[in-house]
């Protein structure tokens, strides 16, 4: 199928209206860790791209990146520089050599803390690149509930078109699925027209079954995307976790007809690994999930490696990081 590459992500958003809480669905979820790991292990051997195909898929990976900075020392200057990188993520001569300069490839979004939203929105004006704000007491999500809701509202008011919320891990760890559902539902309501990504912090959930159950509860509550991690947990986006979440997205779509997006975040640094993720999304969910509408990487260092690989494809020489614009 033909996925138009030029459409900025948020212009025709898939929205997930959510549904009534259905505890039976959650109880009936079963996940076998070893089987998931085997699938992931095999995936790399079953599917790969070479040469021009690989270059095209690396460009696709770029279009899916939520270019991210989430540091205590972020400043407006730093964020503006990041936004410039988001607008033109690859050196022009490389794009020309690939014959894709006319495609206007940008990253999928820029992702920042609330205080940087305004700066980013201004820096991206006219590009169609949405700004995503991490929210709700990111990364731990343990600030007062009322303030977490307000934080969403303020970021939306500041121009964030996407809100990355964090769930209360304790609801998952204690199996209180209704509490999780109600929390995410409240966040979703506070997001209004902004797209909501629910961060599950899978590295803190303890088991694959819990990851799957939390995914399902968040989707029932109306999450437009489910996202693996904040990037701050000890274990972030792993392919087995991604596989389990992707399969829940598939089940949710089978049952409700709604398409929910997926965002792995944290630890995805190499072009090769990004291709593994795209291959998995294509295999498990299909071509709609290999574009920015329904798939994003939460990453900061990934882009630099992809640029180097693209240059290698164009020139046949291995490139160095300092030859590409700093994000």
């Amino acid at each position: 199928m033909n996925v138009h590459p030029l459409r900025p992500a948020a212009e025709t958003p898939h929205r997930n209206p959510g549904m009534a809480f259905e505890p039976d669905w959650i109880d009936a979820i079963h996940v076998n860790l070893s089987a998931a790991e085997r699938r992931v292990e095999q995936m790399g051997g079953r599917r790969s791209w070479k040469k021009a195909h690989q270059a095209a898929w690396l460009l696709r990976a770029i279009a899916c990146i939520d270019l991210t900075t989430l540091a205590g020392d972020d400043t407006p200057g730093r964020v503006r520089r990041l936004c410039a990188k988001a607008r033109s993520p690859v050196r022009l001569d490389i794009l020309e050599a690939l014959g894709v300069e006319h495609l206007g490839i940008t990253t999928g979004a820029v992702c920042v803390y609330h205080e940087m939203v305004e700066t980013a929105v201004k820096a991206l004006e006219g590009t169609g690149i949405p700004v995503a704000a991490v929210s709700t007491g990111f990364p731990a999500g343990l600030s007062p509930f009322r303030l977490r809701l307000m934080e969403i509202g303020e970021s939306v008011a500041a121009g964030a078109r996407e809100i990355d919320i964090v769930i209360s891990r304790r609801h998952v760890l204690t199996g209180d699925w209704r509490a999780l559902y109600e929390e995410v539902q409240a966040f979703r309501a506070a997001c209004g027209d902004a797209h909501m990504k629910a961060i599950l912090a899978t590295g803190e959930l303890g088991s694959m079954r819990k990851v799957a159950q939390a995914s399902m509860a968040a989707m029932m509550a109306g999450a437009d995307f489910i996202k693996t991690s904040t990037g701050m947990e000890a274990v972030n986006a792993t392919l087995p976790v991604g596989l389990v979440m992707a399969r829940m997205i598939r089940d949710y779509q089978d049952r409700t007809g709604c398409k929910v997006g997926f965002k792995p975040a944290g630890g995805i640094r190499s072009a090769k690994v990004s291709l593994n993720w795209l291959a998995m999304m294509k295999e498990e969910l299909g071509n709609e999930w290999v574009g920015p509408d329904l798939f994003r990487f939460g990453a900061s260092a990934l882009l630099a490696d992809i640029e180097r690989q693209l240059e290698h494809f164009v020139t046949g020489r291995y490139s160095a990081v300092h030859r590409h614009a700093l994000g």
């Binding site: 033909n2 095209a56 014959g99």
Partner: peptide, 18 residues
């Protein structure tokens, strides 16, 4: 349209010969 642009628009598998 260049080959890469075309492949970008049509996200499919390609040959990966050993």
């Amino acid at each position: 349209m260049s080959l890469v642009a075309d492949l970008y628009a049509n996200p499919d598998w390609g040959p990966a010969p050993e």
